[in-house]
């Protein structure tokens, strides 16, 4: 029986003891990891699932971390997890509940319609192409970094980036929207 635990965990929940340095580092990465997980996912809940799986893996594999660039390492784990999930999804297709209701991420943008089109267009990209696009565009990684993180040649990074950009543009057009506003 687990009588021994009562004392040490009496204060309940997770803040029972001080996080160690590694955990603090992971905590500091949470916002970036959350954004990246969401940028790969089909919905908010899918993104949170992926985030949790990733954090779990990062913590259970901490011995395997070589001590350089925790962020890139965590992003790599997330990228791989996501690819596996996609494989699984391809074998067991299911419609996300939120998607079925047409509720996908409408809340945050000034233009909800635009947001939905963007999400739908993104969902048409392959997991690999989407990861490269997000790592470059949102997370600001250089092509060489992405190549190392994904263990692929830089030429593959470039062709995936190219494909992602063209497919996204196509998908947005298919949706009969010309119109991502121009920057400036």
């Amino acid at each position: 029986m687990s009588h021994g635990r009562d004392g040490s965990e009496a204060s309940a929940g997770a803040d029972a003891s001080e996080p160690d340095a590694f955990e603090e580092d992971v905590l500091a990465l949470m916002p970036a990891l959350r954004r990246y997980s969401r940028s790969l996912a089909r919905s908010d809940s899918d993104g949170e699932d992926l985030l949790q799986d990733c954090v779990e893996k990062v913590l259970t594999r901490r011995q395997q971390w070589r001590g350089v660039n925790l962020r890139a390492w965590a992003f790599t784990i997330m990228t791989n997890l996501n690819r596996n999930r996609h494989r699984h999804r391809a074998l067991h297709p299911e419609v996300e509940y939120e998607e079925a209701l047409g509720l996908v991420a409408e809340e945050q943008s000034a233009d909800p319609l635009q947001s939905r089109r963007l999400e739908r267009a993104l969902d048409r990209l392959s997991a690999e192409n989407r990861s490269v696009l997000m790592l470059v565009v949102i997370e600001g990684y250089r092509y060489q970094d992405v190549a190392e993180m994904m263990a692929i040649p830089i030429g593959t990074v470039m062709s995936r980036l190219s494909r992602a950009r063209r497919q996204l543009a196509e998908a947005m057009k298919d949706d009969n929207v010309i119109a991502l506003r121009r920057p400036k």
Binding site: A14, A16, M30, R35, S39, Q52, Q108, L118, E119, P183
Partner: peptide
């Protein structure tokens, strides 16, 4: 620009993060 704007809102910590990590 659209992607950056769209996903920027997700780059935040949440109350449950500490519990998740520990």
């Amino acid at each position: 620009a659209a992607l950056q704007q769209h996903f920027a809102v997700y780059a935040h910590g949440e109350e449950g993060d500490r519990a998740l990590v520990s």
